[in-house]
């Protein structure tokens, strides 16, 4: 993964670690494998159910008793459920949410981490406290709000994807800000100070120095907000009413929200496919997450 470096210390360190790695390798693999089983085995049920004929979720412990692609086929062929469209909607909405959340959350985290201003601590506390507010009535409030907005900005109101993105961005200064705030704090202020002495503006320090340094956490936050938006159905269900606007989560939820008539087979198939982009995203972005500060510096 990393190219060679000529620094003797690093090389010495690597040698030591290699030795340690060898002697420790077997138990690390054991633990990792156990955890993989723990992570995977409930999902194997979903896979089995998506391939079964019966359309049940937990019907038997006999996994993969029947294997058929019928559920997947139904998913893509039923004109009632424009699955591909939902998929695209989800990607667009989650992508935009991820981008917006990362930008706004990072900016706020930067302000809290780098500036000393009146009400800074109170502001942080307020963000925390707001998150503790139970959202039991959100479904009425958000609807009322978007209904009012519809009259002013129709493209931002009810039944619009933009409106849903805006609702999601309302949570941009949530847990993500705390995550980034903590991360920003690990970057010594000496760096900014040195740059300020050299005449860099705050915007330049932010965009060209700090953000690249916190890249791993930006990627993490982007992923987290992407997943949040991708899997949410509670808010999406309130905002989106027309099936052609649905996200994947809303559409899939409809398969199983009817009592006694749940179509678990199709739902599982949809969930498996829905999990794919998230998985691919993770595989793709993983190197940005782990190739962090030291990696970025040591690597070529």
């Amino acid at each position: 993964m990393s190219s060679a470096t000529t620094q003797p210390q690093t090389q010495r360190g690597r040698k030591r670690r290699t030795k340690a790695g060898r002697s420790n390798a077997w138990w690390r693999h054991v633990v990792a494998l156990i955890m993989c089983v723990f992570a995977l085995f409930p999902l194997v049920y979903a896979l089995s159910s998506s391939l079964s004929e019966a359309g049940s979720l937990m019907g038997s412990n006999q996994l993969f008793a029947t294997v058929t692609g019928a559920n997947y086929q139904q998913l893509f062929s039923d004109p009632q459920t424009p699955f591909m469209r939902w998929f695209v909607n989800s990607l667009v909405i989650a992508g935009a949410t991820a981008l917006g959340t990362t930008l706004m959350g990072a900016a706020a985290a930067y302000a809290f981490s780098r500036f000393r201003f009146n009400g800074r601590r109170k502001g942080l506390m307020s963000l925390l406290v707001i998150q503790m507010f139970p959202q039991l009535l959100a479904f009425v409030a958000i609807f009322l709000l978007l209904f009012a907005i519809s009259g002013v900005y129709p493209f931002l109101g009810l039944n619009s994807r933009m409106g849903l993105i805006a609702v999601y961005l309302g949570g941009a200064l949530g847990a993500n800000t705390f995550l980034m705030y903590g991360f920003f704090n690990t970057i010594p202020r000496d760096i900014d100070e040195a740059a300020t002495i050299d005449g860099a503006s705050h915007a330049q320090i932010y965009w060209t120095m700090i953000l690249p340094l916190v890249r791993p956490i930006l990627v993490v936050v982007a992923m987290l907000s992407f997943i949040m938006a991708f899997s949410d159905f509670l808010l999406a269900q309130i905002v989106l009413q027309d099936p052609s606007q649905y996200t994947l989560a809303v559409g899939l939820y409809e398969f199983v929200s009817v009592q006694f008539g749940e179509d678990w087979g199709v739902f599982s198939a949809g969930a498996i496919i829905a999990a794919l982009p998230v998985m691919l995203l993770f595989l793709f972005l993983q190197r940005y997450i782990v190739a962090g500060l030291t990696g970025g510096a040591v690597k070529g």
């Binding site: 479904f139 009322l144 209904f147 269900q237 027309d242 409809e254 009817v258």
Partner: peptide, 24 residues
């Protein structure tokens, strides 16, 4: 005729009740 595909459960009934007075 336009269809709004939504299965009936407690939440969809609550939504209908909340949205009806607004004509929505």
């Amino acid at each position: 005729v336009e269809f709004i595909q939504r299965e009936i459960n407690a939440q969809s009934i609550s939504d209908f009740i909340a949205q009806a007075p607004m004509g929505q």
